[in-house]
Amino acid sequence: MNFLERINITKEILIFTAILIVVPFVLQNEFHFQLAILAMLNAMICIGLNLLMGYAGQVSLGHGAFAGLGGYIGAILTTEYQFNPLLSILSAVIFMGIFAFIISKPILKLKGHYLAMATLGIGVIINIILNVEYEITGGTDGMAVDSFILFGFELFESMHWYIVVALLLVFTLWIFDNLIKSPFGRILRSIRDSEKAADCVGINVSFYKSVVFTISVVVATIAGSLYGFFSGFISPQEASFNHSIELVVMVVLGGLGRLYGAVIGATILTVLPQLLTAFEEYETLIFGLIIIAIMIFMPKGIVSLWDKILEFKERKFAKSA
């Protein structure tokens, strides 16, 4: 095993890092930067959600709400109570982690449609609370969030944000890749395939489901609170049913159970609506059509295209040899 293998620096992560380094040179204006940062934050949430959905096989239609609630906690602690932003994010992570672990027990006993509905229900309730408790959250209009000041240095320029978020994303990818390639990752996949099999070799299935749910909520919380600080504004829209659905679609579109699928799906579905604004009132309609088309023609996600190319090459190679 060479050194790169030992520390699990894969070809994929090197290529992806290279892309992240090149992108800022291509981006032309402030708006492009914002879009890129937003895509990376969504990608982070999706990596966590994919661990839950694609690897452990548990659906969540509430992750938008979890990310949003985490974002609000971070935003409120800094804006209203002058917490150091890092401390705010840490507090949000601890709170949401405990919250997720507690609710995970009863929720993850459910399966299929019932699980989908339970996570959806919790998400919608969170969203309603954020809308109604306007004295704390600013209600439907949302709230302004103080800027991210760390050690007297204000994170203000888009380029700086880009670097911070990109580093965080690469780091997230790396630790999740480590997890997936470990006994822990194998346990998650076994739970997806057969809970009975996992149970009969001594795996405490409900505990692992709770842990993976909590991990995914924590990652969503970090991304959600960074989003608040970055955009200087947070609204219940971030925690809406629609956002939860978008996140699930991103994961499935990229490819369930494929680490980089989540990144690709998040990037496409963040950028696509912006491109579609050119179609003005047709935007939603086209967006819906694209989702339908992908689910019909590419249900295994965009990454599966890559598999097909490889397969094709192999077959060609086999023929010629």
Partner: peptide
């Protein structure tokens, strides 16, 4: 049996109780 795991991975699942699953180490 876990369909999408390899044959070896299915066996490794049996060894699970002896292996470290410490999250930080993972």
């Amino acid at each position: 049996v876990c369909d999408n795991l390899t044959v070896l991975e299915n066996v490794l699942l049996g060894f699970d109780k002896y292996m470290s699953k410490n999250l930080l180490k993972t």
